[in-house]
Design a protein around this nucleic acid. Sequence first.
DNA 1: ATAATGACTGAAT
DNA 2: AATTCAGCCATTA
Length: 103
Amino acid sequence: MTEFQARVLQVVRRVPPGRVVSYGGVAALMGQPRAARGVGAALRAVEVDDDLPWWRVINRNGEISISHHSISRRLQRELLEREGVEFGPTGRVDWDRFGWDGR
DNA sequence: ATAATGACTGAAT
DNA sequence: AATTCAGCCATTA
């Protein structure tokens, strides 16, 4: 577990149920606003435990960002909808309604 | 130490 | 509004 990964998890763990945050958002909350890609790399590498709501992290366009050949992609949307997050006709989440700013 | 790889983004088209 | 491009960055080989 790298130092960077630990800081990422620290932020992701604070995202409330029914809300979503972008990779860049997590990066910003860590005080490293340009590390959006690094956040993705960390979530890919880290071993997910029960206390890590990884599914509440999506890309800036409000879309799920896991590559299409991944099983988790379908799962992520299901987990989000289960907590009340709605996807529009284009399969995108509205930031004004479900976005989390860190408070 | 180097290079390749994407769960990224903002600006330009 | 949708696509393209060029930086950015932690991981991994």
